[in-house]
Design a protein around this nucleic acid. Structure first.
Lengths: 353, 353
DNA sequence: TATGATAGTGCAATGGCTTGCAGTAAAGCA
DNA sequence: TGCTTTACTGCAAGCCATTGCACTATCATA
């Protein structure tokens, strides 16, 4: 290993050309100025041999981007987002970008501060905003306030609520929720409960679909069937305990996401309710562990891989192609119901069956 | 918002001083050159008002660090590492650093490539290597080959096996394993099985402790009681199915980590084995979900928070203080047994009890 | 009043890369 | 042979912050 880092100068010298030629060759610049194939190859060979790497700072200083993409996540430590980051990080590497992590820790202010820094073109070439954080309408507008001219893509934030200036990639949360709810209804459930974690775009869309479904199918939501809680294992656990203590407890639970569903599973067992005999539970996300808990979780799968790929693809188009993207791109991907073992007919149907 | 980004020039102009003064004030340079309190405050005020942020590229170009810390992880999409990243990212932000993600995807070559890039001082100020990847002795030596002069800290890689040149923060895996195994033995288990995921430092240490324990306590490991597999839900599931199909199946399982333990739980149920009545299972990590599966998982808790904090702390000392760190720091933290519901006495003891 | 010390300031070089434009060599043409 | 055209190559000016060193006031002392 050389002790000194190799600069473009060294490559130029070795290859017997000027720095500018090296730069032009290595950047494959679509410049008017032609360079012979022979020179090209020689430069590339020398650069390779010397193990030359351009200085990232110098590149960004002279306006060639940072090679960095920021990714602000509602909660890194949430298996769904961990999977999403995983997908995106792999693809980013393939495309020659590194990921800079921003952890919003569920706080809109954190996300805001992170966004301000990362959206600075000198910091990152682009920014992915994963998972909604809105606690109030204002916060959301604010977070949404910098649109397409800023190389920002929203992922899984609940596209329906976005004001319109940010390109986004989402799944159809409404449809996903309906997939789950229809399935429960088909099994014979009417007393279906749900969670409410606040005005968090993606989860909120599911809740709205639930409300609509209950209204249309059963004339409304039974009292206390929408339990306010946090979206976490613990949140699901506690909310379910409350639900099952209701005078008229539900026979089924649409848990909004898999962490809550798994928490719910635990709560049901602890209270002596058998799943799915006494209580059916549907999750959302289909995170890996969902298939390994027992009973295995019936859940709505998000196409995580596709979600990540499309989001990064879109962002890269914006960064590299500088596409004006008008109308503002809004991708909505399809969720899928994965039927496993956590749902069955309600008790009354079981006896009659 | 100003359309043009604010440079140090603008601040200098506004404050009526020269660029160098601004730079000196803002960096709190411990220079010999004195600057009056009044000027200091004026400059700071102006910088604040103008919302000045130094250009990261320019800073790194003139040798002042990048403000970036690389974090290469065996597998982002592994709840334990996700938790670790979470901790570290929070602390890094407090310290004014951003995290650049490197996803090794379990491949040593990936980690190597990432390391080469990130260890370049022009890329990152320091590097955290989380989780061991060694598949062979050579790979490991290689990954370890750049030591303390390179602002690199190993985290959870199995300190015992590190050759000695890399500062590290680990837990005492041997002790953790013994905590679990002693507990199982105390309950009356003798037929204790285990997983083998290859020469992956941290997990390998646990396996070695297991082997030693079985040798000393019961004169050796019963045939096929160490199941080669992957460390994942699926790996645990499959290995357990194999274990329970053995002519003389185990009465207890030390699953090496929680993902495998949860996979094991699923396999046991699927094969009609009750946990803990027919099979006791101990995990390792105490990731969040461990407390919510049923039966709740008895497991060895890693002090994840402390692990992350100490690692970053150590790295920052190396970066900022340029400490020669001799002897090479090697922190070993204490694990803790968390007793929940997945263990009980073996069948024969149950009847006699 | 000159001299030296002290407090405070700013010029200008530096770092590595990109890129507009000026430059040169070679080939083509009259 | 002398001219234009074509096919390339390289100079040098940025980009922005850092920092060694030289500089100017100001004041106290001899």
């Amino acid at each position: 290993m050389n002790s000194r880092t190799i600069t473009i100068r060294d490559v130029a010298e070795q290859a017997g050309v000027s720095q500018s030629t090296v730069s032009r060759v290595l950047n494959c610049a679509d410049t008017q100025i032609p360079i012979s194939q022979e020179t090209r190859q020689r430069v590339q060979r020398v650069a390779m041999e010397l193990g030359y790497r351009p200085h990232p700072g110098a590149r960004s200083l002279s306006g060639s981007g940072t090679g960095l993409i920021g990714i602000i996540t509602r909660e890194i430590n949430d298996p769904f987002f961990a999977e999403l980051i995983d997908v995106i990080s792999n693809m980013a590497k393939e495309e020659g970008y590194d990921l800079v992590l921003g952890n919003a820790k569920r706080e809109p202010e954190n996300a805001l501060a992170l966004r301000d820094r990362m959206l600075d073109p000198r910091h990152c070439d682009g920014l992915l905003l994963c998972g909604d954080l809105r606690e109030s309408a204002e916060d959301h507008t604010f977070l949404d306030s910098m649109g397409r001219d800023h190389r920002l893509v929203s992922v899984s934030r609940g596209s329906q609520h976005l004001v319109g200036s940010t390109p986004s990639v989402d799944i159809d949360n409404r449809k996903g929720a309906l997939l789950a709810l229809d399935y429960l209804a088909q099994l014979g459930h009417q007393r279906i409960a749900c969670m409410n974690v606040g005005r968090v775009g993606d989860l909120w869309e599911r809740l709205e679909a639930y409300r609509e479904f209950m209204q249309e199918g059963f004339g409304g939501v039974p009292e206390n069937y929408v339990q306010p809680t946090k979206n976490s294992y613990d949140g699901g656990y506690k909310a379910t305990k409350r639900l099952l203590s209701l005078p008229t407890p539900p026979t089924a639970l649409f848990a909004m996401d898999d962490t809550m569903a798994i928490g719910a599973l635990g709560a049901a067992v602890d209270m002596g309710w058998a799943v799915p005999a006494d209580l059916s539970i549907v999750g959302f996300d289909d995170m890996e562990v969902a298939a390994y808990v027992r009973p295995a979780l019936t859940t709505v799968r998000q196409p995580t891989e596709e979600l990540g790929r499309k989001a990064l693809e879109l962002l890269l188009t914006m960064i590299e192609g500088e596409v004006p993207c008008d109308p503002c791109p809004r991708l909505v991907l399809e969720p899928e119901l994965i039927i496993r073992d956590s749902c069955g007919p309600p008790l009354d149907r079981q006896t009659s069956a």
